[in-house]
Structure formats: C-alpha cells, structure tokens
Design a protein around this nucleic acid. Structure first.
Lengths: 335, 335
DNA sequence: TTGAAAGCGCTAACAC
DNA sequence: GTGTTAGCGCTTTCAA
C-alpha cells in the first residue's frame, strides 16, 4: 500500500466548484455560506477524505496549539507524574502536549530541544546540564519553563523546595532516634545538594553529622548496587536517606536480601513519593515533592506566557511534604 | 521580555549580501561557495542568531524526520519501557520521537492521534479502542504500527503472544501445586482475554478451572481495591494471576495488610515484568512481555515503512518469557 | 559559483 | 457570500 499525496484545499475547492478561500473559511467555521455551497463542500471533503495540514496552517498563523515537555527519563515515575500533570492542564486548555525523553544524555539535549522547539508554542524543560551551559534556553525564541532555578531572564521556573524537603527528612529521622544517618546521593542531579544540605542542617541542630555516599544512577539498580558497600561497612548507618524513592527501593531490597531488618536495624527513606512507595514492604517513608503539581504549575506558567506574549512574571516554589511510613518507624516500635 | 520574530534566511541573505538560495544551500551543506562568501554567511548567521525553521522545511520536503508514539498511560512502566525502546532505535537512526499520552480516554484518542500524525513521518499506536472503531488509523495517510492485532491493510502490528504468556503462567501455578487459581483481569484491555484463555487452557490440562474477577483500572490502586473482596471471600483462592504487575503489587500489599502470607497461603503473579517487580517483598513472579523490545520492533517496522514508502510486510510476534520468583514458590518451600 | 523564481498547503486582507 | 491575491520560511529546478 502506497501513500499517495493527500488532498489539499485546492482539490476540495475544484471538486466543490468554489475558491480555496471559501474552503479555508468553511473548514475554520468562521463564516457561513449558502446551504448548497456548504453541502457541496461537505461532500467534496468527505469523498476526497480531505484533512487539514496543520503544518501549513501554523506556517501562516505562527501557532501550533501544542506545547513540548522534555524530561530526563520516562522510566522514573517522578517524571511520569510531571507528564500527567502537564498533560491534564494542556488538554483542558485545548493544547496538545508532545513529550520527548532526553535519556539522561546531555550531549543530545540541545539538539533534541531545538528540534522540539520548532514544533511547539512553548516548552517545559527538565535538564541535568549546569545552568551556565544552557544559556541558549532563552534563545529558543519560545516561552520556556524550567524545572529548577535559572536566573536567565525569559525563563520561568518551577521547583519544589529541596532544602526544606531534606530538612524535614533529617528532623524526622532524628526524632525517630536514629544516630548514624547517611545520605546516599546522586551528585549529578540539580537537586542533590539542596536535599543534602537540608538533611545536614537538621542533623546539626542535634549535633549530628551525616555520612555521604553516592550512586551512579538514580534508579532501582543504582540503589541496589550502592547498597552492598554501604551495608557491609563495619560502621553501618542506622538510617539511610536516598536521593529518591527508586534508589531507596533498591536499598530496601538489598537490605532484605542481607537479612537486615527494616526499620528495626536500619531506617530507609527517599524523596518523590512515587506511587509504588506506599506499596513496599515495609511501606517507604518519603517526601512528597509534588511531581504532578510541578507539571501542572509549569503548564500554567506556559499558558500565561503564551497569552501575554511575554515571559515575565513570578516563578513557582512548591512546599514539599513529609510522608512518614513504616520504613523509618522508631526501632522496636514494630515487628 | 517579548518574543521578536526570529530571523529568516532572507535576513541572513541580505546581511551577507547573497541570495536566499545561496543561504539555503549553504546551511544544508550541499554545496561549497567561495571562501569569502562562506565567511560572510557564517558571520551573518552568528550575529543574527539565525536558526532553521524546521516546519517550513518539512512543508517543502514533506519530511519531518520525526516519529510519533501514542501510549495509554506514561505512568505504567510497561509503556515507559516501550517509549525507551522506540526512542533508542529512533535516535540511532537520526529520527526524533514525540510521545503523546492518551490518558486512557477513548474519546480524545482520535483527535490527539490526528494532531500527532500531522507532525510526523509515521506513528506507533497503542490503543484501547476496539478494532472496528479505529478503521481510520489506516487513513491517517502515514505509516502506522499498531500494538496488537489489526487486519486492516496498511497497518503493521507488533505484539507479544498473550495466549502463550497466560499458558506459561497457568502451567507454572499448577506445577507449584496450586489448587484454587483465580484470574483478576481488566476486561477493557485488548490483551485481557488472550491471557485469560492461556491460563484457562493450562489449568484445563489438569482438570482445573479458573475463577474470574475484574479490576476497574489496571493500576496499583485498582489491584488494591479489588483485593478486599477477593481475599475476604470464604473460598479464597490459593493463587491469583493479575492482569499486570501493577495490579499484582496492589494485591500483594493488601494481602500483607490482611496478614495473609505470600506465597505460603497465597501465590500472586502478574504480567509485564516491570522493573520494580523484582524488588518487591516477596519478589513478584511475572511474565516478561518484552515491553522494551516491543518498542524497538515497532520502530524498526516504522523505519522500514518509511524507507520503502510502503506499508507492506510482516507483522511481529514476540515470545513471552516466564519469570518465576518467590511470590509463587510452592507453599512451605520458604518462610 | 551564484541567483531568480516557482511553489509546499494554508490564512487573511481586501475586492466584488 | 464568494473570489483574488499576497505571503508564512523554506527547497529546488533552471538559468546565468
């Protein structure tokens, strides 16, 4: 089956015996015509199987009614939630959302983003590239909303307070009576140091310090791999805060394999509150970073930018929320 | 900050003192010019900050070097894996991939797909709409690869054998000594009945029958909600096969809350082998439905279609693989 | 090696 | 009500 050239308004026009302008106005519903003409138009469109070429339209209108969202990894439920939130708001406002997965590959990032920006009215970007390397974001010529902080004018930002998230977690563990608290981070991530600082400050208030470790990747496997070294050390922590829930789940699994009792011998916690965390055994303590709301907020900002034809205005900072569960219950409080 | 009209080749042309044809040829690298001209061109492009308008180009070339992928729900790791697979192959072949989340809403499906098809050279579609309602897929005027079966000419298909998957699972449970096996399905899904039939046939070979139940949604919460009724019944099953891993994990969690020992008192299994299944406590038995390879295969088919300018050729059927884990170990074989 | 001009499918301003 | 026409930004003959 070959793909023949699709019919254009010109084909419709000659089939219906009218001009192309008439066809254009008709399909845009911005004007009524005599009943007979409208009927001929409908017939012609139906028999030819005509469909509007969106590209051609946006060529002249300069609008696509589509937004783009670039995320680091669809496989991470945190990002999947962001997609959900952004998509919902977009659809409600009669915009489509196109998602691209950056695959955690900084080298491709710019290329993919430039390609995306050409097809949309604005974009939302999650990036791992350092601020000073993405100056070009503002030069895409389109409204951009960025996850994180970015001083560049013309780029608005959405984020959840990572410092506060870390602080809440640190406090929680101290209150649960933990004495040797470790942070298993992912240094390449933008939010890693905020979270770590939060934890550290909370511990400092009780004169505790935090041991630092790092994963290669912020994933289930990354957590599992890091676990071995961490859990076998002679001075094993009695609590581990992981960079995110995925890493925490990897840890949890490895701890179970090694016969370490969670939370009695070891407390484990993460960040993000991804859906599956509640279903773990034991359920995982975490901080809700409002992933879905981040997506929603970013999309709202984008809609504003497009409507005002400007990119001024406030950034958005969301408040994280501690979600205490069994994985950090005070030692001895449960079996 | 306002968004000014971006520079066009016409701006570059006049800045460099050449014609637009020269600019066009230069940026496409298909022709060399005198050193001085090339230098003027480079300067003009740099100072103006010129960037190619992809839309305008595809308007004339008829190519976008982009494919579209429509999935039912990004939040389901099965689909996230499909995205990964498809994206990898696309990138390797110098194509971009645009993903759209259908949000499990059949009403919007057609609209979203039509919008997407206008921006890409071909698409991969996962749908919940019955076959006879998506006849229009073939009329999108673009190559289409569909997940599932679809007799329509011009639409190629990729799927993993659901019947075989169910059969493997059924056999596994019978061999593990289970006597009252239930299937907790999601009837709205295309693959539900294949899987059920497979299970049923496997059980029939040992003269067993299967009890059927259904979830509202194929999600963690869906599984948890269905669990209550199912687990409290007087004739409680000693094994439950869930529609997918998410549902199984919901079940697993609820069983734990109710103090039911898995696998001793109850075996639980799912389909898909999503990454987190291996990390559950106990690790979840499942059938690997080759999600990522489905995405890869679909993209390969699409590339073929585009290269041959035709949509003929074979469909692809992948073999599922049983992944036995602790959640279905024979009763009494472990604590 | 360079340029003029036609045209991709559509919209919008302006005639009639 | 309906038609003519000039582009949107680009590629691509074809000619010079």
């Amino acid at each position: 089956m070959e793909f023949k050239r699709p019919p254009t308004i010109r084909d419709v026009a000659s089939a219906a015996g009218v001009s192309i302008a008439t066809v254009s106005k008709f399909i845009n519903g911005q004007q009524r015509f005599s009943p007979e003409v409208e009927q001929r138009l409908r017939d012609a469109i139906a028999t030819l199987g005509y469909r509007l070429n969106q590209q051609a339209r946006s060529m002249v209108t300069g609008q696509t009614r589509t937004f783009g969202l670039a995320i680091l990894d669809v496989r991470n439920p945190h990002f999947a939630n962001i997609v959900k939130g952004a998509n919902r708001i977009a659809l409600e406002n009669d915009y489509n959302l196109l998602v691209v997965d950056l695959e955690e590959r900084p080298s491709h990032e710019r290329h993919l983003l430039e390609a995306l920006s050409g097809r949309v009215d604005g974009l939302i970007v999650s990036s791992r590239i350092p601020d000073d390397s993405i100056e070009w974001l503002g030069e895409l010529g389109k409204p951009v909303v960025f996850f994180g902080q970015h001083k560049r004018p013309g780029v608005r930002c959405v984020r959840t307070d990572g410092y506060r998230a870390g602080y809440l977690m640190g406090l929680h563990l101290v209150e649960a009576g933990r004495k040797r608290i470790a942070y298993l981070g992912f240094p390449k991530a933008r939010w890693n140091s905020e979270r770590l600082t939060g934890v550290r400050v909370a511990l400092a208030e009780s004169n505790q310090t935090v041991q630092e470790y790092a994963v290669e990747w912020p994933t289930l496997d990354g957590g599992q791999q890091a676990a071995a070294a961490l859990l076998r050390s002679s001075q094993r922590p009695d609590a581990i805060v992981a960079y995110n829930d995925l890493v925490a789940i990897g840890l949890l699994h490895e701890a179970a394999s090694m016969g370490i009792k969670v939370p009695d011998e070891l407390a484990i916690a993460g960040f993000d509150d991804i859906p599956v965390s509640r279903f773990m055994q034991p359920p995982l303590t975490t901080v809700n970073m409002r992933s879905e709301e981040q997506g929603e907020a970013a999309m709202q900002l984008l809609l504003e930018s497009v409507r005002n034809k400007s990119n001024m205005g406030r950034d958005i900072l969301l408040e994280p929320q501690l979600v205490p569960r069994a994985s950090t219950a005070p030692a001895g409080s449960q079996g």
